[in-house]
Each structure stands twice: as C-alpha cells, then as structure tokens.
Design a protein around this nucleic acid. Sequence first.
DNA 1: GTCTATAGAAGGATAGAC
DNA 2: GTCTATCCTTCTATAGAC
Lengths: 193, 193
Amino acid sequence: MTQVARQRPRGAGKAHLHDTALRLFARDGVEGTSLQAIADEMGVTKAAVYYHYKTKEDIVLGVLAPLLQDMTAVVTAAQTRRGQQARREAFLAGFVDLVLTSRSRFTMLLRDPYVLRLLTQHPDLMQWWLRSREIVVGANPDPAAHIPWMIFLGGLGTPMNDPAIAELDDNVLRERFLEVGRRLLNLRHPPRH
Amino acid sequence: MTQVARQRPRGAGKAHLHDTALRLFARDGVEGTSLQAIADEMGVTKAAVYYHYKTKEDIVLGVLAPLLQDMTAVVTAAQTRRGQQARREAFLAGFVDLVLTSRSRFTMLLRDPYVLRLLTQHPDLMQWWLRSREIVVGANPDPAAHIPWMIFLGGLGTPMNDPAIAELDDNVLRERFLEVGRRLLNLRHPPRH
DNA sequence: GTCTATAGAAGGATAGAC
DNA sequence: GTCTATCCTTCTATAGAC
C-alpha cells in the first residue's frame, strides 16, 4: 500500500524548498541568503537541501524556471496576433498578469545582481527579454525609443515595500499597471466590452 | 613645503576607494563584492581598505552618502516653491538631473537588497523618500495613487545594461526621463523659454 | 597609509550512515 | 529524504610592524 503523505510537517520536498528559497531570495537577495538559512527556515539541515539540487545556482534556476517559462508563453501568444498594435496589447495584458501572479519571482529576476549575472551567462534565458522588446518597441532603430519600456519593465520589478501598496487588491494593481503601461507604450485604452 | 601629490599610482586615499567600491557594488551587488575584491582592484591589501573604514557597512554608507545628501537638497529646494504643480516640476527636474549625475549610486540605492535592508534599519536615511513622495503624490490618501511614482522611481533605478542605451548622450536620456516622468505624474510640458 | 599574519566565523559542498 | 560529520575556501575584521 502507498505511504501516507505527511502534511509537510517539516521538510517534505521540492515544493517546500521552492517556496522557502523564493521567499528568502526575494527578501534578502540570493547572495544574502545562505543555504543554511534556507535549511533553518525549512526545519532541515543543509544536506537535505542538497538532496534536491546539486548547487546553489541550480536552486536559483529552479526557483526562476516557472516565471521564465510563463514569460516565454506570454511572448509566444502575443506574437500570434496580427498587427503590431494587437500584439502589443496582448503582450501588455499577459505581462501584467504574469507580474501579478509571480511577483516575488519577477522582482528577483529584475533586481537581484546575482540573477543578472547568471542570466548574462545563460543567454538562452534572456530570449524572453529580446522578444518582448521586439514586440513593444518594434524595429525602431532609435535606442532612445527603448527607454520608456525599460523604465516600465524595471519599475514593475521594484519591491513596493510600502505597506499601503501591499494591501491593495490585485485587481486594483492590474488596472494601475495597465494604465501606466499604456501611457508609456503609447497604447489607447482598449474598447469596453 | 607641501608633499608632491602622487597621481594615484596605486592606492591613494578615500576617493580611490569610493570609486572602486561603487563600481563593484553597482556591478556585482554589495554582498557579491568582498573587501578582498575591492582591495585587489585598487592594488592594495584588505588592511589598507580597513584603514579608511572600520566595517563594510561603513563603506556602503560612505559610498552612498553623496547621493543621499543631494537627494535631500533636491527635495528641500523643490519644497521652497509655491504651488503643488511648481513643486512637482522643480522636483522632477532636479531628481532626473541627480539620477543622471549619480547613476550607479542611484541604481545601487534602489536595487541592492543589502542597501534596502540597511536603509530600513536607519530610517533617517529614508527621509528623502518620504519627502519626495509627499511632493509627487501629495496628501492623496489613496494608496493606488502612489503606484505610478513607484514605477517611475524604480524604473530609473534599473541598470539599463543594453549597450545601445549606454551609448546615449545624457541630454537625450534627460529628455526621455523627463517625458516619462511627466506622463506618469500628470504634468504638462513646461513652457518653452 | 600600507604591509604581513592571523584569528574566528560562515560559506558552499560532499561522504556515508540510517 | 534526512541526518551527522567533515573539508576546504572565503569572508569580515584585528594586531602590530614599517
């Protein structure tokens, strides 16, 4: 007969590791988070953590993987649209949703110096970045045209620690993020349904 | 008679330390930069670095100090203006100039997890943040009204590693930053002179 | 102001038992 | 899947000579 699944009293698998590592990475930065700290927070030893991943770098990549996959999916979906304007609108909507559903991962991705170095060493992990820029800025050869998008991208990656903001409902955040995005990317409000 | 000042062949003082530490902190993050790495880059030993500052934290604060002082000055200058609109315009102009003249410091201030923790432990170093928010958002009690400002602030703190952007002239950057700021903060273009 | 030398703690990572 | 025990490296920081 199958083992009775324990309700994650301590330790218990990759999911718990992902949750814990992500929380600490987002709060203290990757290099401000030791494997000891992760293990302590999980209630296990370092060796237990090393059972799931061989190196710290692998943990970081494992934690970021879902976001990178989703970003690729959003870009791909947007690129099926016909017309630049439609592509940009589709991308913006999908992108903002993704930022909301995966906030700490997104903050980690854009803010952490360790992650930035990691990505530049794995150019394949940066494809979403190039493709999203292509959608948003298009083939505009003027580098100055990229700046509003860079500001928007980076701006959504800020922690927004302000407790007043942290209390806001996701729907409110979505509306404000979309509004800022439309203003910066020169999109009109979409038609009301 | 005075000593002939050596032209900083190796080592040579706090200024060199400030430059070197800032460059490495901005590139690799505070916790990704060891005192050994700073010393190596300066061509001295760790002990020489410790002559100038007692701890690593003090180095970080020493490196950030000029920016924090300038931010306070910009806020104070803006607050002497009469009328909310005039205050916001003055602040935005001074703020963008400061970001341009102190870019790596600004990126470090807004992006580094170590710095963020440091600032929350020294609330006096966060006064510029509260005061600038007061100028930009005013007494608006709706936390959602803070979001565009947060995005703008955080967005200007992104590294903008893109080599195409790095090549841009400061005057071009200033214009684009100001334009984005005005759009997000609902300011009209200032009158042409 | 800079050096050598070193203390003492913490970091990432592995071996082998259970 | 988790443990104990351990290795080796790197880290911050200090003492004391020049």
